[in-house]
Design a protein around this nucleic acid. Structure first.
Lengths: 343, 343
DNA sequence: TTGTAGGCGTTATCAT
DNA sequence: ATGATAACGCCTACAA
C-alpha cells in the first residue's frame, strides 16, 4: 500500500529550495529557466512521481484542450472509421478527446451535450441522433462561442459548419445505376427520420425515377430503423408485393443485407429476379452473396476534415468561421448484387 | 456575439446579496438552506446561465467521478457491445466516461494511459493492445491505488481483476465440435500475439486434438493478424496443403469469413470439403454463406460486469478487492459452416 | 534567471 | 440558516 498523496510543484520546490514559479516554468520548458535547474527539476519530478494537475491548470487557463464528440452509435464500421480520422488529427494537434454516444436517443444526446459543456470542451463534433429535430440543447455552446461542427447527420444552423457528402446525388446515382440495369420497380428502404441523410437519399431516389420518367410509388417507399433485422422483416413484405419489385435500394448496407438474406431464403434470385443496392460500403457488403452494390462513404476523411476544421476555428484561422458546408466526394461501387446485363 | 464570461457563484451571491457559501450549499441541494433562498438561487442561476465549474470542483474534491476506458479498437461489433455495457452501468452510477483506443499499438496505449492518469480518472478499464507484454505503464495507477480492471485482453497482476471468458474451454468445445463432425485435419488460425486470448484458444484447440488422439501438426497452426484480408490470404495457403485440411477454426469471425470467401471463390465446398468455425458471434457470421459456426461472446455482459466491479471497488465494497478473475459464460453456436452430418 | 503574490471557482470548516 | 475564510495546485504579471 503506497501513499495516495499527490506530488505538487510545491513539493518539488521545497526539495530543491527554489520557488514554485521556477518549477512551474521549468515543467513547461520555458526557455527562460537555466538548463541546469531544469534538469534537476525534471529528474526530481520523475523521481517523486509528479503529475501535473489538469484541473488546477484548466481552472487557471480557462482552456481544456479537449474536444468532445457525440455520435449516435459507435458500432458501425462507418462510425469507427470516422472516429479514427478524428483521432489522428486531434492527437496530432495536441488535443484530448472525449467520446460519447447518444444511442440514437435525443434525450441522451441532450445529457451528453450537457456533460461536454460541463467538461468545458473547447469544441464539439456532433453527428445527430436519429430523431433529433430541435437542436436547442446545443445553444449553450453557441452562446459561448464554443465552435460546433456537425458531420454526416447534420442540421442547418448559422455559425455551425456541416461536413457531409452529397447524399442526394449519391442516391440519384445508385438509383440511376439500377435503372440502367433494366430495373423498373425499385423499392427504397429508408428511415422514418427527418435526418438530412435519409431525406436526401430519398430525394435522390425520387429524382432519378422522375428523370427516367418512372412513377414514384408510395408503396415502394418503406420506412424502418434500417437495422439488419428490420431489413430481414422487409423481405417478407416485398415478397408479397404484386407486381414483384425488381430492385431494392436500401439507405444503408446492413438493412440491404438483412433484406437480401430474407429474399434468398425464399429462393428468389439476386440479381436475376431482384437487384440490390445499399449505402456506406460497409465491409459486410463484400461478404454477402452476391456482393452488394453500394456507395463508398469516406468516413476517415470525414473525421479528419471535421476535426481539422474545428481546430482551425479554435486557432482562429481566417475564413473558416464563415464556412457553411463542406462536401466530400463519394462514389458508386457496382457489385454483383445489381449487375444484370453485360455492358 | 455574446459574452464569453462565465457566471460563478460569486455573481449569483452578489446579485442576491448573500454569501457564496449559501449559494454553494443551495446548488448542491443542502437541506440546511431555506426553501425560499434555494428557490431564488436556482432561478437566478437558470436566468444567468450559470454552470458549475468542474475543474474548480474537482480541484477541491480530489475526485473526478470519471472512469477511463482503453481498448485496442472501437471498430468491432464485440467492442462496441462491451462499451455499451460499460456505459449503461457507469451512467447509472453517475460517473462520466473517457474512451480512447490504442489502435493495437503499445506505445499509443502508453500515451493513452498517461492521458487518463493526468485526467485523474477514478478508475480504469483496459483491454490490452495486441502486443502489449510489459504493463509497467499502468504502474502509476497501481502505485496510487487507482483501481484497474482488465477485460478480454488481460494480464495477470496482483491488485487487478480480470474479466474474461474461458477461452481455452470455448476453443476446446468448438474444436471438439469439428471433430465430432468427422473432421480430422483441422487448421487453426491464430494471432502472433502473446495475448491470453489467442494463447488460450490455441491451447484449447491443441487440448481437444490430444484428447481425441489426433496429432497436433505445426503446419496446421497459422499466424496472422486475424483481419478479414489476412483470412483471405490464408485461403490460398490452405488450398495448397496436401493432404487437404477438412476444417478451419479461426480465432475470430472476421478472419474465418475472409478465409471462407477465398475458399469459396476456388469452388471448394463448405462444409462438405472443409468445415469452418470462428469466434465471437459477430453479426457477419450470420451473413456469410454458409452461416458460420462460432462462440457467442457476451460483450454487453462483459462491459457491465467490468464496470460494476470497478465501481464497487471505488465504493469500497467488501471482498471486491481480493477478486482476481471473473469468468463469464460463453457458448457454442453451431451453424451450417460446420454441420456435416445429421445427428 | 528567479521569486512573490494574486487569482482561477469550489467546497468545507468554523463561526455567528 | 447564513457568512467568512482557507485551502485545492497552477500560472503569470510584476518585482528583484
Amino acid at each position: 500500500m503506497t501513499s495516495n498523496k499527490e506530488v505538487t510543484i510545491y513539493d518539488l520546490a521545497r526539495r530543491l529550495n527554489i520557488s514554485i514559479a521556477t518549477v512551474s516554468r521549468a515543467l513547461k520548458n520555458d526557455p527562460v529557466v537555466s538548463k541546469k535547474t531544469k534538469k534537476e527539476i525534471f529528474e526530481l519530478a520523475e523521481e517523486m512521481g509528479y503529475r501535473s494537475n489538469l484541473f488546477a491548470r484548466n481552472l487557471r487557463n480557462q482552456r481544456t484542450d479537449t474536444i468532445g464528440v457525440i455520435v449516435p452509435r459507435l458500432n458501425s464500421y462507418f462510425m469507427s472509421t470516422v472516429i479514427a480520422g478524428i483521432e489522428s488529427v486531434v492527437n496530432h494537434a495536441g488535443f484530448n478527446l472525449i467520446i460519447s454516444q447518444s444511442s440514437e436517443s435525443t434525450s441522451k444526446e441532450m445529457a451528453n451535450a450537457r456533460t461536454m459543456f460541463n467538461n468545458r470542451v473547447d469544441g464539439l463534433l456532433v453527428s445527430l441522433a436519429y430523431d433529433t429535430d430541435d437542436i436547442s440543447h446545443f445553444d449553450i455552446f453557441l452562446r459561448r462561442n464554443i465552435p460546433l461542427v456537425f458531420f454526416d447527420r447534420v442540421t442547418d444552423h448559422k455559425n455551425c459548419t456541416n461536413i457531409l457528402i452529397d447524399n442526394r446525388k449519391a442516391a440519384y446515382e445508385i438509383t440511376n445505376h439500377l435503372i440502367s440495369q433494366g430495373c423498373k420497380r425499385i423499392v427504397h428502404i429508408t428511415a422514418a427520420s427527418r435526418s438530412n441523410v435519409y431525406v436526401d437519399r430519398l430525394a435522390g431516389y425520387k429524382h432519378a425515377l422522375q428523370d427516367a420518367r418512372m412513377p414514384v410509388r408510395k408503396e415502394y417507399i418503406i420506412d424502418n430503423d434500417l437495422s439488419q433485422e428490420a431489413g430481414f422483416a422487409v423481405s417478407e413484405k416485398i415478397r408479397q408485393m404484386r407486381p414483384f419489385p425488381d430492385a431494392v435500394f436500401a439507405a444503408n448496407d446492413s438493412c440491404a443485407v438483412g433484406c437480401m438474406l430474407g429474399i434468398e431464403q425464399a429462393g428468389i434470385d439476386i440479381p436475376g429476379d431482384i437487384a440490390f443496392a445499399g449505402f456506406n460500403n460497409d465491409p459486410v457488403s463484400k461478404v454477402v452473396t452476391p456482393n452488394l452494390t453500394t456507395i463508398n462513404y469516406p468516413g476517415y476523411e470525414m473525421g479528419e476534415t471535421a476535426a481539422r476544421h474545428l481546430i482551425n476555428r479554435l486557432n482562429g484561422a481566417a475564413g473558416v468561421h464563415s464556412t457553411n458546408t463542406i462536401l466530400l466526394r463519394s462514389e458508386l461501387i457496382a457489385r454483383a448484387s445489381s449487375l444484370r446485363k453485360v455492358k
